[in-house]
């Protein structure tokens, strides 16, 4: 409303192209009771075509109440030693170090709980969560508690190969020859180390895009924690500039939690941006 300028034919006459060449004036509709404002602009492209640009914005009014005494004191005259003081005195310095309220108890408690939960999950048969990186067995034990650990060290067989005693020792022969180097991806058939690690990464992994540059792991932790336990958060940073690249991966321990997070947070407004939350497409093997 309002800003629409009356269009006069005389305006067009001044232009070389005549009435066709004149762009309609910018039109602003709203803001309505919800604060939504629509701006319709017309631009001319280089090739002469007219382009209509419609921008929809929401106007929010933030009311901050201030104590009049405080406002008045904002402009107090300096006195005493503060009078001759200048910025180079460095009396007031913002700490360069980020300081946190370091939680005492929950650190230990939570860790314990998670471990317990892990054990529970394992007993429930959701065994794919625990994969020993030493022997490749699923759901029996953690890597650090692998009973074959010493065997690995003594016999010197490659990590990722099955321990002796299991039937198919022959899988190792997939590699070129016994003495030559076998790249990890070729070792022990498809039970390779890299495989199991990647599998862990793709499990219940969701991708969050359109994040603002300021978003850190901690923020995502806060955002996604309410849906369930998270096993990994990865925020992509640009290696050169150190800025966030605007997307992140989050792995949930439980698939249901991930589903709920996607349903709830896809299209959620976060830091003035609309988040896109979806399943992370499994990485296709790079050659």
């Amino acid at each position: 409303m309002g800003n629409r300028r009356e269009f006069r034919w005389g305006d067009a006459a001044d232009e070389d192209e005549g009435i066709e060449g004149v762009l309609p004036p910018t039109q602003v509709i709203g803001p309505d009771e919800k604060g939504v404002k629509i701006i319709i602009e017309w631009r001319k492209r280089e090739d002469g075509a007219k382009v209509k640009v419609t921008t929809t914005v929401r106007v929010k009014k933030q009311v901050k109440k201030l104590n009049p005494a405080v406002v008045r004191r904002r402009s107090l005259k300096k006195f005493g030693d503060a009078l001759g003081q200048n910025a180079s005195d460095n009396l007031t310095v913002v700490s360069t170090e980020e300081i946190f309220l370091e939680r005492t108890r929950p650190a230990g408690q939570q860790g314990q709980k998670q471990e317990e939960k892990g054990a529970e999950l394992a007993s429930l048969g959701n065994a794919s969560l625990i994969v020993c990186r030493t022997c490749g067995k699923k759901g029996e034990h953690w890597t650090s508690k692998c009973p074959f650990k010493e065997l690995v060290a003594n016999r010197g067989f490659n990590i990722g190969e099955r321990p002796p005693g299991e039937e198919d020792l022959g899988t190792a022969s997939v590699g070129p020859g016994k003495a030559s180097y076998v790249p990890p991806s070729m070792r022990g058939g498809k039970q390779g180390d890299g495989e199991s690690m990647r599998k862990g990464r793709d499990d219940n992994s969701i991708r969050v895009t359109n994040l603002s540059e300021d978003t850190r792991e901690q923020d995502l932790q806060e955002l996604f924690r309410p849906f369930g336990s998270i096993s990994r958060i990865y925020v992509a940073f640009d290696r050169d500039t150190g800025l966030s690249r605007g997307f992140a991966f989050i792995n949930f321990v439980n698939r249901e939690d991930a589903v709920r997070a996607i349903n709830k947070l896809d299209g959620y407004g976060y830091d003035n941006l609309i988040l896109r939350v979806e399943w992370a497409t499994p990485r296709t093997d790079r050659a």
Binding site: D81, N90, T92, V93, V94, S95, E97, L101
Partner: peptide, 9 residues
């Protein structure tokens, strides 16, 4: 949080 350090004393 990044505390503000005041060195007036």
């Amino acid at each position: 949080m990044r505390p503000i350090l005041l060195k007036g004393h």
